[in-house]
Design a protein around this nucleic acid. Structure first.
Lengths: 193, 193
DNA sequence: CGTCTATTTGAATGTACTCAAAAGCGGTGG
DNA sequence: CCACCGCTTTTGAGTACATTCAAATAGACG
């Protein structure tokens, strides 16, 4: 259960066996079945979730009733609503599972305690936040400069593992286009391949 | 010169007078004249810049030769390229000034030293990163769900101070539309006001 | 097998784009 | 101070890409 988490953390900071043992005590294992929710909009996102197994998404529904996907997450990723989590405010996002999933949850207080107990984790979380911030900057610039087709190809290239595990309409939503448009883009690409 | 920085930091963490005095030693004051560059694409972004006075932007130029604005910054904001800064890689962004500006620069090594000298700063920078990450998430979701007109109105509401200080075509670029489209949106809004 | 949802396709519409040109504005030098 | 120059903003006309609405086909799941 904790193997993947260990590898994940060791990519960013060094930890002794004892330190890792200690760190695991702050996490709460949790299973989320396919189509079930980890977070429902309106609730506070109490946990940051590390994905050990499975596939999930976070999304909002806008005034027009349209779904917009903020994030996908598979093994070795985190998912949550940072705003709600850090500011203790109700979330506008919902998070549900595309597959039966196994998570390790870390609540806000436990994160604080973990950082106090093993200060290296302060650095770990800063690095994590940094990587996410950089990735979101990239997504912004791409949405400004690339056509829908280019964004789709980039997505395929960057997240092949996600592409093969989520319905096409979800990818369309992530890219900010309709499922119909994505279907046409795919047809166009297959013709000119 | 350092007054604004003090207020800025005290919004997030507590500091004694002595601690603040010490912290200022890590910053390098710098002036950037109107139309001059703080960072040129291809160079490594060696500094995070806190804006004491003035107005700047960071932007890239895509394969088609189009400019895309990543960020504006005025007083009390930071500007830089986090990826280049933290990963020590050449930046794809350039940063220049719309007005004569006064900055306080903090290089990567100084940031580390500051965090070691006054550990509370580790927390300060994490909070800063957090706020920026949350803001960029919001920008992504807005670009997915809102029309150009709605995004323009949101920009006006969220950043009135920036709106009045940068040319309209720069705002168009930030919003991901052409200057012509923004002009038409404005005409449309003024008719239906 | 039947139902429900996802995907594809078609036709018409709309929003934002490109190209082109006019009008407005700000700064500079005579 | 005014005339000129360059750049920004506006406007017009035609186009392209993505959307909506509608319907057919294909897949997944019980």
């Amino acid at each position: 259960m904790f193997d993947l988490l260990r590898k994940h953390i060791l990519k960013r900071i060094d930890l002794t066996k004892a330190e890792f043992q200690q760190c695991t005590t702050y996490f709460i294992p949790k299973r989320v079945r396919k189509h079930r929710y980890l977070l429902e909009s309106g609730d506070v996102s109490r946990y940051a979730a590390f994905v050990v197994k499975g596939c999930l998404r976070s999304y909002t529904i806008d005034q027009a009733g349209e779904e917009h996907i903020a994030q996908f997450a598979i093994e070795d990723w985190w998912i949550g609503d940072p705003y709600s989590y850090f500011e203790n405010q109700p979330s506008v996002y919902s998070i549900d599972a595309f597959e039966d999933s196994e998570l390790l949850l870390l609540d806000r207080a436990s994160m604080e305690k973990l950082c106090l107990a093993i200060p290296k984790f302060e650095r770990f979380f800063r690095l994590l936040l940094q990587a996410n911030f950089i990735a979101s900057q990239r997504r912004i610039m791409q949405s400004l400069s690339a056509t829908a087709e280019e964004r789709y190809l980039q997505f395929l290239k960057n997240y092949p593992a996600i592409f093969s595990r989520v319905p096409q309409k979800q990818i369309a939503s992530y890219l900010g286009i309709t499922p119909q448009s994505l279907s046409r883009i795919r047809r166009h690409l297959s013709k000119h391949a």
